[in-house]
Structure formats: C-alpha cells, structure tokens
C-alpha cells in the first residue's frame, strides 16, 4: 500500500522578473517562467511527506501548453519521479471551473478516484500569482469527491492513512485531521521549496513526460475552453497608479537621516495619482431580445 504523492503545478511568469521594455511597457517576452511560488511550496510539502513514507511514488501534474514541460522537469529536478501534462488547444480560455474539471478528469483517468484502494494525497499551491483565485484545489477536490484542506502551512503524516494539516485562518490557525485521499493546498509560508539537485536535473533532462490530450482522458469539449466555461472575462481595463519617484533621506547616521526624512515630508510634493488608463468607450446597444436567466 504505497502512498502516491501528487503535486499539481502551474507555470507562471516570474513576477519580479517582469522588466520594463524600452517603450515603458511591460516586456512579457523577457519574463522568465517559473513554477508558481505557492505550487513550489506544494512540491516541497510532498518531499517532506516522503520522509515519512520513503517508498511513496511522487508524481507531478500540470495543465497548459507544451512549454509547461519546463515546470514539470524542474519538479523532477527537485526530487519527483513521474510527470504528466494535460495539454490541448481546446482547453484554451478555460476558467477556473473548467480547469478544475479537466485536472480532476486527468487524475481520475490516472486511477486516482475517491474509491481508490491505494492511498493518495494531492498537493497544490494555495493560488497562482497570475490568477490569484485559489479555486482550483477546492474544485479538484469537489470533482473527485474527496475532502480538502486549503491555506495549509504544513502537512504531516503519522505514517498511516491520515494527515494532520495546519490551516491558516484569520487571526490564527487550525489543526485538522484528514483521511487520505484528500487535497491539500499550501500557502507559501511553510517550508520553502528546496533547490534542484544536479542529479535531479540530470534525471529531469532524460525524463519522458506523459502528455495527454482531452480525448486521451475522455474529457468532452462541452465543459472546457472558452465556450464551456461558465464564466468569462468580459472586459479588462488598465489601471495606472502613479507615484512620483521616491525622495530619499540623506545623511550618514540615523539622526541625520531622520532629520532629512522629516524635512522631506514637510516639503511634501509626492502624491498618488490614479487614473484609468483606457477611456471607456460607449458601445451601441443592439436591438437584441433580453434574456433573463
């Protein structure tokens, strides 16, 4: 009854790497891709569980374009064994509901259902830095039909089929006991992700990643992609908050620095300007029938 530890990861642009292009706009092409930070904490949580279950099978899964293989290889370089990628053009534009559904379908296809004989635990990041919704872990748990604990800082196993999770709540935390199988989403406040090892990187370089399309896992098109998603992004407006460049205090010790700060504050002049970068356009309202729902 070996345990299977499954980590879900997403590849995102490194937020701090987003450099300004020469035209003053964000140059996304230069932003490096990384495994979403929270997901990295999920990966580490899995490697910590391995200490208590040395014979566990470690697998990492993702959904996205082929370039996400890089994230999967990074996970293997950290210590994971197998990697699966759900990649299909038809998944493009999926909202969180459709994403949760697709990932749950892939996991069920791999044999991880609520009635599995073998215990498993699904680890995920609390949320992604490019979406920030925190939905997918809950949705995967619901779709598979297993319990969950989200916003978890640390997860420990007692060597049996239960885990104890420390869940962060407003003003404190909860300790919860969960039976496996279950889904745990990790906050980036637990044990920081380890660095890759060279031996892991060598293993990752030679790894065969299993890639599924939606047909492979028996996922229909009706509930995925833009058309299958129950929600849509109707409009995006740029927000520009402009703070003028900082005025730094000058001086060679704390007395002089604080004097300088107080003088700068008294001078004032720095104020926040905020505006919507794009003007709202009036759209002609066509003469379509109203639909109430």
């Amino acid at each position: 009854m070996a345990l299977t530890i499954i980590s879900l990861v997403k590849q995102v642009p490194l937020p701090s790497e987003m450099r300004m292009g020469e035209d003053g706009l964000m140059d996304r092409t230069k932003a490096k891709s990384i495994i979403n930070i929270d997901c990295q904490f999920g990966l580490e949580a899995g490697l910590q569980l391995l200490k208590q279950h040395p014979d566990a099978r470690l697998i990492v899964c993702s959904m996205g374009p082929g370039s996400f293989e890089a994230a999967l290889r990074s996970a293997v370089a950290m210590g994971y064994d197998e990697a699966y990628l759900l990649s299909d053009r038809k998944l493009g534009g999926s909202d969180t509901y459709a994403t949760g559904l697709a990932i749950a379908t892939m996991l069920k296809h791999l044999g991880f259902t609520k009635d599995s004989k073998e215990p498993f635990i699904i680890l995920a990041g609390r949320q992604t830095s490019d979406g920030d919704t925190a939905h997918v872990p809950s949705q995967v748990a619901e779709k598979i039909g297993i319990p969950q604990a989200t916003f978890v800082e640390s997860v420990k196993s007692d060597g049996t089929n239960n885990v104890v999770a420390k869940r962060i709540i407003e003003g404190g935390y909860q300790l919860m006991n969960l039976p496996m199988p279950c889904v745990i989403s990790l906050t980036p406040t637990g044990i920081p992700p380890r660095k890759q090892s060279l031996s892991g990187a060598i293993k990752a370089r030679n790894l065969q990643i299993t890639t599924f399309g939606i047909d492979d896992i028996g996922l229909g098109t009706e509930k995925i992609g833009i058309s299958g998603s129950p929600t849509i992004v109707a409009k995006v407006v740029n927000m520009v908050s402009e703070r003028p460049p900082i005025t730094l205090a000058e001086g060679h010790n704390e007395v002089a620095l604080v004097d300088s700060l107080i003088a700068n504050l008294a001078k004032g002049g720095n104020v926040l300007e905020k505006k919507e970068a794009v003007e709202k356009k009036e759209v002609d309202r066509p003469d379509f029938p109203n639909k109430d729902f």
Binding site: L47, I191, S197
Partner: peptide, 23 residues
Amino acid sequence: KTKDTGLDHHGNQLENFQAGTRI
C-alpha cells in the same frame, strides 16, 4: 561536487536541505 543547499546562515541543515551531487 555541487554545493549543498538548504542551509541556514550558520551552515546548519534546514528541512529543505538538498545534498550536492558528486560528479
């Protein structure tokens, strides 16, 4: 050998210690 990672400022091993690889 590659460097051990997952050490604190004093060189103590942390929970995310990853031993270096001998080449």
